[in-house]
């Protein structure tokens, strides 16, 4: 549906019209209302493909990542992994399937149990799924640690003895321990220093190459996504507003939001273009989204037509891109 490479194989992960609502009570005695964090998102990830999910806080990108792993159940739509609908697989079989899909978190301080050695935590997955005896697991932990660039002798250390970048390497080793073919990385480098970010991004790129992982890389940093991903989905207020090959989107963003996002990202090489004012206003509340296009309240191109209906994702340009904007052809 998006690129030629997808159609000739079955995708590894397929999300079809997934939505996720959270219940929230407004005020102490207020009515309960649903906040739709993710709205009718379609996303496919082919084997060995890296897909970037980009957007600002509150756009639903982390929720989407957890929906793809079925750590959250979708309130509508389905997620298929390797052809099987995750919602229909129960208990033990789902747990067995988890061996093949893993999650890497943003905060390398919160994602490791502070009370257990990193070796034990990396070995967990192998022992849970019976992939190794404790002795074999110890050996594999050493191998995994050197694979992510750490000293195998450090398996007996506790997380607090490592720096942030090293902890993120430990978290990556834990995710790889069960030999997954699908990994969701949720802002894995956002909490790290610039020089360390580059190390971890390179590590993820190498591992993806050598292990043939399918990767969903969630980030607010467009530059990092461009380095790592084949394809990008840009999200705003729970919906995908633009998707397509990373290179094409970065070269010529089509959706007004993608344009604004790229323009707002500070750059070392180009001084701020003073003619292009930063995007005005703030993200509308997900509990009370605007009618029609979610971006219209901040969009410089918005017309009355934008308020009437949610613009569908439609093919744009010849490069496998899809854009959800009724005026995309005019404003080009």
């Amino acid at each position: 549906m998006t690129s030629a490479a997808d159609s000739c194989r079955t995708p590894l992960v397929e999300a079809e019209g997934v939505s996720r609502a959270f219940r929230a009570r407004q005020g102490l005695l207020g009515r309960r209302r649903d906040i739709l964090a993710v709205r009718e998102v379609d996303l496919t990830v082919a084997r060995r493909e890296a897909v970037g999910v980009v957007g600002e806080s509150g756009c639903g990108k982390s929720t989407l990542g957890r929906l793809l792993l079925h750590l959250l159940k979708p309130t509508a739509g389905t997620v298929r992994f390797d052809g099987r609908t995750l919602a229909e697989i129960g208990g033990d079989r789902l747990r067995t399937l988890r061996r093949r899909m893993q999650l890497i978190f943003q905060d390398p301080y919160g994602s490791l149990d502070p009370r257990r050695t990193v070796g034990d935590q990396i070995a967990d997955g192998m022992l849970i799924h019976g992939l190794a005896t404790p002795a074999e697991a110890r050996e594999r932990v050493a191998g995994l640690l050197s694979q992510v660039g750490l000293d195998p002798a450090h398996a007996a250390r506790l997380p607090h003895e490592f720096s942030g970048g090293q902890r993120q390497r430990v978290a990556i080793a834990r995710a790889l321990a069960t030999g997954p073919d699908f990994v969701v990385a949720d802002e894995p480098v956002s909490a790290l220093d610039v020089s360390i970010q580059a190390q971890v991004v390179n590590l993820l790129a190498d591992l993806r190459e050598s292990l043939g992982l399918a990767l969903v890389f969630i980030s607010h940093d467009l530059h990092v996504v461009r380095h790592l991903c084949d394809r990008v989905a840009v999200m705003y207020l729970g919906r995908v507003v633009e998707t397509g090959p990373a290179a094409a989107i970065f070269a010529a963003p089509a959706h007004p939001y993608t344009r604004a996002l790229l323009a707002a990202t500070p750059s070392l090489v180009r001084r701020r273009d003073s003619s292009r004012a930063p995007l005005a206003g703030e993200l509308p509340s997900p509990s009370d989204p605007p009618s029609g296009c979610g971006f219209r309240t901040r969009c410089p191109f918005a017309t009355t037509a934008c308020a009437e209906a949610v613009p569908p994702l439609e093919a744009f340009g010849g490069d496998g891109r899809q854009v959800a904007c009724v005026r995309v052809a005019e404003i080009g």
Partner: peptide, 17 residues
């Protein structure tokens, strides 16, 4: 809801463990 507890869930660990 801490990340390292969710991480155990993502690994497929049983609730008791």
């Amino acid at each position: 809801n801490l990340d390292y507890v969710v991480a155990q869930e993502a690994l497929g660990a049983r609730s008791g463990r």
